[in-house]
Design a protein around this nucleic acid. Sequence first.
RNA 1: GGAGAGAUGGCCGAGUCGGCUGAAGGCGCUCGCCUGCUAAGCGAGUAAGCGGCUAAUACCUGCUUCGAGGGUUCGAAUCCCUCUCUCUCCGCCA
Length: 424
Amino acid sequence: MLDARQIRANPDHIKAQLAKRNISGVLDGFLLLDENRRDILGRVEELKSFRNSASQEVGRMKKEGQEPIELMEKVRQMGQEIKVLDEQLKQVEMQIEKILLNIPNLPHESVPVGEDEASNVEIRRWGNPRQFAYEPLPHWDLGVNLDIFDFERAAKLSGARFTVYKSAGALLERALINFYLDIHTREHGYREILPPFMVSADCMQGTGQLPKFAEDMFKIDGLEMYLVPTAEVPLTNLYREEILEAGQLPIYLTAYTPCFRAEAGSHGRDTRGVIRQHQFNKVELVKLVEPQNSYPELEKLTNDAEKVLQLLGLPYRVMLLSTGDMGFSAAKTYDLEVWMPSYNQYKEISSCSNCEDFQARRANIRYRPAPKAKLQFAHTLNGSGVAVGRTVAALLENYQQEDGSVIIPEVLRPYMGGMDAIKR
RNA sequence: GGAGAGAUGGCCGAGUCGGCUGAAGGCGCUCGCCUGCUAAGCGAGUAAGCGGCUAAUACCUGCUUCGAGGGUUCGAAUCCCUCUCUCUCCGCCA
């Protein structure tokens, strides 16, 4: 959520920033309502002020044995007036909040302006895509041939966009989860959390999924609860409505959760394989930091995510997303894209964002910069560290052998009972 | 699912028959004194949100907030209703 006072103070600047994200027209309604709000507020506060002093006066007079009937009647009528104005105020404030909750974050100045992903900027590459002496198979063929993916039975259980992992496939998935958590907790200083996989609508609003993207998520029937679309939601909301001391920051959190996504708008994309699923596993990284540190922290967080790809020996590149491709809550985002031989291109496997105070304002996560100092919103960051299902796909494709087997990277072997390859 | 208890400031915790309680007391924190250093001790200060006034996130000032929402009243942390959550006991259960 943007700061209403900043919008009021500098509407043209905010409009220009929003225009970079192809958003226009939303501020005029806000400004009108905001003025309306302050007008009503001024009037109702004046009435309340009078009521307060009059009520005290009544109390004083009654103590002296008097019965100020006229004054009491006057205040009673004023109470009706106040009630009407309070109701009006409430309506206006609800409209204002609705507008603010639907406005995305402002892009950082370093973010390239563009319509869509075509304007993303490649920052760096790591590793060299392997040259194949034969036509590399896509991961879904490899997985089915090795009998570690079962799409048909998954469809029988749950429909399209689900996968059943079997034997070494299930083990690989589990190995990666443990490997990622170990690296991030032991090497990068994150605290491991195992959160609930269902969260309240309040949490979803706190991180920005609600109210705008309700159709992307799975809601629990009959409850104001949702299956988590990413661990970012429970991790960031851990400190919702809290006041932190400066000494507590930065907070680094990591968690494994399954992620559930309805992905309403993406029908027809990546229909084969495990790339786009209604349920997938992910290890997430979240940071709560002081504002002045958030950009260096974004670089570090991105490096932390990159590290696991390096350890796995998977070639990737880092993309700086343009204004047209960024998520709702982000001010700046780096995507990590892993090399996928069968696609002959890089595919997103991680997304690392600095949300600045956008989520903190929604979730009311504040901290005291120094003793006695005024409270400020913390900055929140999040990044995949990294998506597990897509890692399995990348490993299968990049480490496939001509005989159909797949080599297991050295670092994962301890997590797989010493297994060095998946064979039929 | 059944029965009971509770929800107050950064934390703990008082609030009597509704008014002078934004809220005693304590802890923590800040500043000052004291002090070889530390601890202890002494004194003062210390909620947030939204408005007005401002260059100001500095003063000053108004309103709101004692789990949430509604009601009674001239006036509610205090009375009434609804809801949410927490705790204890019972039942069920991995």
